[in-house]
Every structure is written in C-alpha cells, then in structure tokens.
Simulated scan of single mutants.
Amino acid sequence: MNKKNTIIIACIAFSIGYLFRQQQDNKQYIKPEKALISVKESFQKKYEVSGSWIYMKPETFLKNDLQYEVYHGGITKFIDNQHVPYEFYIDAHTGTLIDMLPQHG
C-alpha cells in the first residue's frame, strides 16, 4: 500500500467514525432530573409548585399519530388554595414538553 492509499483509507475511516458518533449523539437521552427541573422552572414562573415526580426510564408515547420516547412525570400546582396535580410527557431526547394534562385520580 502506498502513502496515497493510506491517507485515503484514513480519511474514509475518520468520516465513518464521525458519522457514527453523530448518530449515537442523536440517540442519547437527557437526564430525567434535568427534564423535571425544566418543567418545574417553567411552571414556577406562573404558579407555586408544591410537588413533582418523574419516572426514570423513558417510555413510548403516541400523540397525533407520532411516536415519541418520553419521560412521564407529574407536577402539583398550588392554585386558589388548592393542590392541583398534573401529568406531563417530556421528550427524552430534546427535553421538549409534549403534553400536560390534569392527573386522573
């Protein structure tokens, strides 16, 4: 093998490695604690938050015929002297809030 072929092979290997790394980065989850903090901070701007929780394992969530990998959690707002629980679903990859709804008892 001559020097030119070695350089070409090295460049190809580097490119493949780089693309593989980009794909792996896209599949990584954010930490559930970070997702919970972002929801709490968002709601604390408008409401007093009296409690919160989050499942640590991502789950599949279907909304509008789209499938997401989400963290499922809950937050309790203190509104009009009452504790009002809500459930939320937050994208496990991006941290985007997908859905929030009153928690059913």
Rank of each mutant, 00 (worst) to 15 (best):
M1W: 06
N2Y: 08
N2S: 13
K3E: 13
K3A: 10
N5E: 12
I7A: 13
I7D: 09
I8T: 09
A10P: 03
C11L: 15
I12D: 03
I12H: 03
A13H: 07
A13D: 04
F14M: 12
I16W: 06
Y18T: 03
L19S: 04
F20I: 05
F20P: 00
R21I: 06
R21N: 05
R21C: 03
Q22K: 09
Q22C: 06
Q22D: 07
Q24K: 11
Q24L: 14
K27F: 13
K27N: 08
K27D: 09
Q28F: 11
Q28C: 08
Y29F: 15
I30T: 00
I30W: 04
K34L: 14
S38I: 04
S38R: 08
V39W: 13
V39H: 13
S42A: 14
F43T: 06
F43L: 15
E48H: 15
E48D: 15
V49C: 06
G51V: 04
G51Y: 03
G51H: 08
G51W: 09
G51K: 05
G51T: 04
W53A: 07
I54D: 01
M56R: 07
K57F: 14
K57T: 10
E59K: 14
E59M: 07
T60A: 12
T60K: 12
D65N: 13
L66C: 03
Q67I: 11
E69I: 08
V70H: 12
Y71G: 00
Y71W: 05
Y71R: 00
Y71H: 01
H72N: 10
G73W: 06
G74Y: 12
T76Y: 12
D80C: 02
Q82V: 00
Q82T: 06
Y86F: 15
E87T: 03
E87S: 04
F88A: 02
Y89I: 07
I90E: 09
I90Y: 12
D91L: 01
D91P: 00
D91R: 05
A92D: 00
T94N: 02
T94R: 00
I98M: 09
I98K: 07
I98A: 01
I98E: 03
I98T: 05
D99V: 00
D99S: 12
M100H: 06
L101C: 04
H104C: 00
